[in-house]
Design a protein around this nucleic acid. Structure first.
Length: 319
DNA sequence: GCGACAG
DNA sequence: ATCTTGTCGC
């Protein structure tokens, strides 16, 4: 099994797929957010399905009122709330009990035809193997990349800061804006942010503003399939990366601050008087040097390259 | 019932 | 990450 440098998989248009899938729910039946997510290939995307349906711009064509909670509760509806959603369902002949529950045994439809694109991405992550090794030569510069989103989450600005490692001072930065076409789904962050981030890295390299190693706002090895955005970004761009996350995606922090999953160390919790951050090796770095680089550059909670990238991208997005 | 699965 | 149409398990 080839574990690296496979071509990056095609990123599906989940928005369009969700809208099309729900048109196949027969009249008088309902489905659930989880069932639609399963048709996409991963039930954990249920919440993303909800978010996508909440942005439905054509309720005449796409009957999102037919999607209810997994316990049979009617659930939310942007255009008129639960009252309107219940009215539409009743008009289809669906009985709703006094406590607002639909009998899913009777009305449920889940037999969607789909090629399950998320399952394909999941498999790609399963095959992906991060290269973990020592950085080797001395670090002179460290970069930080972060992405900020517009209110509707359709556009984003990413910033790559270039820092002098020893001085912990910013030397330069690079900006990239882009449309965002993939929703946020836990453990699938790569597919949302890699397009904009890889463009950003390329632009920084062309401008001679790239660093020896790049801190990424997200995880590397701390990931259910050890395939966080930091690792994938490193592999795609051929750069050394380190993951720095503000909350723990998976695994458990021990008293020794190491994060373990299935008895393997996948990262480290770093606490320097602030709320902790969770560091993991991304691509062609290892945990101990990752932790020491991050720790040395922490004046505040986030290491300076990331803190500045965050501040810059947020302020640029505002304008 | 409440909290969790990066951003 | 913004500004909230989920689901499951502890």
């Amino acid at each position: 099994m080839v574990k690296k440098r496979e071509p990056f998989p095609e990123i599906p248009d989940l928005y369009q797929m969700v809208y099309e899938l729900i048109t196949y729910i027969p009249k008088g039946r309902v489905s659930t957010y989880g069932a639609v997510a399963e048709a996409l290939g991963d039930k954990t995307a249920a919440r993303a399905v909800g978010k996508i349906l909440s942005e439905n711009s054509n309720p005449e064509l796409y009957p999102c009122y037919k999607i209810v909670y997994s316990d049979g509760a009617v659930g939310n509806y942007r255009l008129g709330g639960v009252t309107e959603k219940s009215r539409l369902l009743s008009a289809d002949g669906i009985k709703i009990s006094d406590d607002g529950i639909i009998d899913l045994k009777r009305y449920f439809f889940g037999n969607f035809v789909s090629d399950k694109p998320l399952a394909r991405l999941h498999e790609y992550q399963d095959r992906f193997m991060p290269e973990i090794e020592s950085i080797g030569s001395a670090i002179r510069t460290v970069g930080g990349v972060d992405v900020s989103y517009s209110g509707d989450s359709k556009n984003a600005v990413a910033v790559y800061t270039l820092f002098d490692f020893k001085m912990n001072k910013m030397l330069d930065y690079t900006i990239q804006s882009d449309k965002i076409c993939f929703p946020y789904i836990p453990s699938y962050l790569s597919f949302r942010e890699l397009p904009i981030l890889s463009k950003l890295i390329e632009k920084a390299e062309l401008g001679k503003k790239s660093a020896d190693v790049v801190l990424v706002d997200g995880n590397g090895l701390i990931h259910p399939r050890n395939s966080g955005v930091a690792s994938m970004l490193g592999a795609v761009c051929g750069i050394k990366t380190i993951g720095v996350a503000k909350s723990l995606l998976c695994g458990t922090a021990g008293d020794d601050n190491f994060i373990r999953m299935n008895n393997k160390v996948i990262g480290k919790r770093i606490t320097k008087g602030f709320k902790p951050v969770f560091v993991s090796a991304g691509w062609k770095t290892d945990l101990s040097e990752a932790a020491s680089i991050v720790s040395e550059m922490m004046i505040r909670r986030l290491p300076e390259p990331l803190r500045m990238a965050h501040i810059l991208s947020k302020s640029l997005m505002a304008n």
